[in-house]
């Protein structure tokens, strides 16, 4: 039972990470109609910038600033140099060009930092564990991530429901043409939304660093999982991103934790482990298939 609680929290923590990426991705698509594969690169760059800064200075705060700045600046550069030329193009062109960006960024990272993964220490303030229930210790750092995720979700909620920019974002997500017709400074709106998405992706990368190793290719792994989240939640919907991310995070974590053990009760250990690993890594995709069967537009479709 305590293990279940622990894994459930791990699932929520993964869900929080996925949410930060999915919210940016889904808003960028909703507002600008752009699919940006390099969103995962922002995650990676944020992680690297923070890891290097932490290693050099030993300061977590500086690492946080460096990671956010790197992701934010890179996001603006991508928008200015490449994506701006792709708004009017079809999705195929967007996919291919941003695929080119991924190759470039991954190789650049290899050129600068090599292929060896980097490891980041958990900031001293967040080391150790607390007892959630008597006899159930849980790492503080993971709780911090969950807390940050909740704050981000609340912040986004306030931004979207209570501000003028949020109103435009909502309008844009349901009817892109209408926002254009309103005569809003679309450039500014785009930059704000894209910058926000980049910062969130960077933040997720920074926080992921101490949990997983920081390495090339980390962006794409989580990007594809983020796609699953967006498809399940419904494209362009932040609410969908919240639920989709939590669902995917929890399902993925639970399957990995418990499926092999469950199978071991029915067959030989090694076979059970192999099959369990296979099925659990496929689990979220099967979940996506199920959602597609029942609700082809996702659980919370933004477009009428």
């Amino acid at each position: 039972m305590t293990l279940v609680l622990e894994q459930l929290l791990n699932g929520v923590q993964l869900g929080v990470m996925l949410f930060m990426l999915a919210a940016g991705l889904t808003l960028i698509f909703g507002i600008m109609g752009v699919i940006n594969l390099a969103h995962g690169s922002l995650f990676m760059v944020g992680a690297y910038a923070a890891a290097v800064t932490a290693a050099q200075t030993g300061s977590f705060l500086l690492a946080l600033v460096a990671g956010l700045a790197a992701a934010g600046v890179l996001g603006m550069v991508i928008e200015f140099v490449v994506l701006r030329r792709l708004y009017a193009r079809d999705h195929l062109d967007q996919v291919l060009a941003t695929f080119g960006l991924i190759l470039f960024f991954n190789q650049s990272i290899i050129l600068i930092f090599g292929r060896q993964p980097m490891f980041v220490n958990i900031p001293p303030a967040f080391q150790g564990a607390v007892e959630l229930l008597p006899g159930v210790p849980y790492p503080i750092y993971r709780l911090v991530i969950i807390a940050v995720g909740i704050l981000v979700a609340l912040g986004l909620w306030v931004l979207i429901t209570r501000t003028r920019i949020g109103m435009l974002v909502r309008a844009g997500a349901t009817n892109r043409e209408m926002v254009r017709a309103l005569g809003v400074d679309i450039r500014l709106l785009y930059t704000v939304v894209f910058g926000l998405g980049a910062l969130l992706a960077g933040l997720a990368g920074i926080m992921a660093g101490p949990l997983t190793s920081v390495q090339v290719g980390m962006g794409e792994q989580i990007l594809i999982l983020t796609f699953v989240v967006v498809v399940i939640g419904g494209i362009g919907s932040v609410r969908g991103a919240v639920f989709g991310a939590l669902l995917v995070g929890v399902v993925d974590t639970m399957l990995r934790a418990f499926l092999p053990g469950f199978l071991r009760t029915m067959m030989a250990g090694s076979e059970a482990d192999a099959l369990g690993a296979g099925l659990s890594s496929m689990g979220v995709y099967l979940l996506m298939a199920l959602v597609l069967l029942l609700r082809p537009k996702g659980l919370f479709p933004a477009h009428g």
């Binding site: 698509f29 699919i35 999705h91 996919v95 594809i224 796609f227 699953v228 967006v230 498809v231 494209i235 192999a274 099959l275 690993a277 296979g278 099925l279 890594s281 496929m282 995709y285 099967l286 996506m288 298939a289 597609l292 069967l293 082809p296 537009k297 996702g298």
Partner: peptide, 24 residues
Amino acid sequence: RTTGVQFIMITLAFAQMVFFLFVS
């Protein structure tokens, strides 16, 4: 059952599923 950008994401995701199948 879907179109546009969802179709792109879904075909990518299912291919990744097949990838993980063979990895495991």
